[in-house]
C-alpha cells in the first residue's frame, strides 16, 4: 500500500484509484456476507450471527478439498459450496426451525452460540495455525494505467458480480425463486397458495450458506484461513444495516461503502481509524436512518 505522501497530481489520482479498487474488492466480501444475512432475514426474519463462521467453514472446506485432497480447482470450489449449502439446509431443518416465532433475542443468542460451536469445531478439526489457500492465479496482477489490480481482487470483483446476476435471475425467473419472494412477503398467503414454506426456509438457508462459502473462497487467497476469520462478519453487519437489511443491491452497496471508506481511512487517516470506520459509519447511519438506506419497515396504525 503506497503511503499518504504522493508526489505529483498523476500519482495522487492513481493512488486514489488504487485505494478505491482495493476498497471495492474488500467491500465485495462484506457485501457477500451481508447478502447472506439479508437473504435469511428477508425470508425468515432471523438474523444469523453465524454467517461469518459459515464463511470460515466454506474457506476451510475449499482448502481441504483443493489443497489437501488435491482436487481440480473448479470441482473443489463446486463441492465446497455444495457442502455448505447442504449444511445450511440441515441447520435450518434441525435447529433453527425450532425457534421460529421465538423472540428475536433468543434467535440472536442461538446463532451466536452456533457461531462459537463452529469456531471450536473448526479449531479441533483444522487447528489454529493460519493456512494459505493456493489458487491458479496467485501472484499475478493486471496493470491498468498506474493502477495495479491483483488477480485475486479481480476474482473477488468478478465472482461477486456473477453471483449477484445469478441470484437476480434466480429470484426473478425461476418458480422456486418467485416462491421465496412470496414467502418473504407474506408467509400465510404463501401457505395458502401451496408454497412449501418450511422447505423454502431451509432452501433459503442453503443458498445463504452457499453464498457464505463463495465469500470465504474468494476471501481465502487474500487473507489467511483460520477459525477466527469469521469475525469480519461483524463488519458485514454494518454493510447489511446500511443497505437496509432487506434488499440485495442494498447489501452490496453497503459492503462497498464500508470497504471503500475503510481503505481510505487506512491510507489517509491516523492509525486506528481503519478498524473504527465500519462501526462509526454504522452508528451514524443508524442515527440518521434507523431503518436503513433502503427501508422496508412500515409503521402499523393502531
Amino acid at each position: 500500500m503506497p503511503g499518504a505522501g504522493a508526489r505529483g497530481p498523476g500519482d495522487t489520482l492513481s493512488q486514489l484509484l488504487q485505494v478505491l479498487v482495493n476498497g471495492l474488492a474488500v467491500g465485495c466480501i462484506y457485501g457477500l456476507i451481508a447478502l447472506g444475512f439479508v437473504l435469511v432475514y428477508k425470508a425468515t426474519e432471523m438474523v444469523n450471527f453465524a454467517q461469518g463462521d459459515l464463511m470460515m467453514l466454506g474457506a476451510f472446506m475449499a482448502v481441504t478439498l483443493i489443497g489437501d485432497v488435491g482436487m481440480p480447482w473448479v470441482l473443489g470450489l463446486f463441492l465446497s459450496v455444495l457442502a455448505l449449502a447442504v449444511f445450511g439446509y440441515l441447520l435450518d431443518a434441525f435447529v433453527l426451525r425450532r425457534v421460529l416465532g421465538e423472540p428475536q433475542f433468543a434467535i440472536v443468542m442461538l446463532t451466536i452460540g452456533l457461531g462459537f460451536i463452529f469456531r471450536a469445531v473448526a479449531g479441533l478439526v483444522w487447528g489454529y495455525d493460519p493456512r494459505s489457500f493456493p489458487t491458479p492465479y496467485t501472484g499475478e496482477s493486471l496493470r491498468v494505467g498506474g493502477v495495479v489490480v491483483s488477480y485475486e481482487n479481480l476474482a473477488i470483483l468478478l465472482g461477486t458480480l456473477v453471483l449477484c446476476v445469478v441470484l437476480f435471475l434466480f429470484f426473478r425467473h425461476t418458480r422456486l425463486g418467485i416462491g421465496m419472494q412470496a414467502t418473504s412477503q407474506n408467509q400465510l398467503a404463501a401457505y395458502y397458495v401451496g408454497i412449501p414454506v418450511k422447505r423454502v426456509f431451509s432452501l433459503v438457508w442453503a443458498i445463504s450458506a452457499g453464498v457464505a462459502a463463495v465469500a470465504g473462497i474468494l476471501l481465502a487467497p487474500v487473507s489467511l484461513v483460520q477459525p477466527g476469520m469469521g469475525f469480519i462478519g461483524i463488519k458485514a453487519f454494518a454493510a447489511a444495516v446500511i443497505g437496509g437489511f432487506g434488499s440485495i443491491p442494498g447489501a452490496l452497496l453497503g459492503g462497498w461503502i464500508i470497504g471503500v471508506s475503510e481503505q481510505f481511512a487506512g491510507v489517509y487517516l491516523p492509525a486506528g481509524f481503519q478498524e473504527m470506520a465500519a462501526y462509526g459509519i454504522l452508528i451514524v447511519a443508524l442515527i440518521l436512518r434507523p431503518e436503513g438506506l433502503f427501508a422496508q419497515i412500515q409503521r402499523k396504525k393502531v
Binding site: V99, E102, M109, I112
Partner: peptide, 26 residues
C-alpha cells in the same frame, strides 16, 4: 488429551450450552 488441550474449547462449550438452553429451556 487431543480434545482436552484444544485452545478454543471453552468458548465452544459456552456456545453449546447457550444453544441447548435456548432450544430446550428458554
Amino acid at each position: 488429551p487431543q480434545i482436552a488441550q484444544a485452545p478454543g474449547l471453552e468458548p465452544g462449550i459456552f456456545g453449546l450450552i447457550l444453544v441447548l438452553v435456548i432450544l430446550f429451556e428458554p
